[in-house]
Amino acid sequence: MQATGREPNTADWIEVGGLEDIPRLGARVIETPAGNIAVFRTADDEVFALRDKCPHRGGPLSQGIVYDKKVACPLHNWSIHLDSGLAVAPDEGCTAVYAVKTEKGRIYLSLATKSD
C-alpha cells in the first residue's frame, strides 16, 4: 500500500500535456492500457496523479471536486488524499499513486511506479 517516495528513472517519464490544460482545482484523465489515471491540479498548481478509481466502489475520482490536497469522489463523497491515495479518515482505503512532475509548465507522468 506504500505509494510515495519513489523516484522513477528519467526514461520512464511520459509527457502528458501542459499545466494549463488542467483547470485549477480540477482534474483530467490519462487513458492507458492498464486503466485510467486521473491527474489533478491544486489551487497552487501542485500536480498529483492517482488511479482513477475510488477505493470505495470504483468511482472515477477525476470527476470529483478538488479541494486543498484532496478530492471528493463523485459517487458517494468519500474524500481521498491526493498525495498518498489514502481515504480521509474515518473512511478506510487506498488508491494507487503515480509519480508526476512539472517542468517548464509541462506535465510528466510515470507509469512504471504503479503500486497496486
Binding site: 511520459i14 502528458v16 500535456g17 490544460d21 488542467i22 483547470p23 483530467r28 484523465v29 490519462i30 487513458e31 492507458t32 492500457p33 485510467n36 491527474v39 507509469l111
Partner: peptide, 11 residues
C-alpha cells in the same frame, strides 16, 4: 471541451 476528452491516451 477539456471536460469531455482525456488529456492524453497512452498506448
Amino acid at each position: 471541451r477539456h471536460e469531455f476528452i482525456p488529456l492524453k491516451r497512452v498506448v
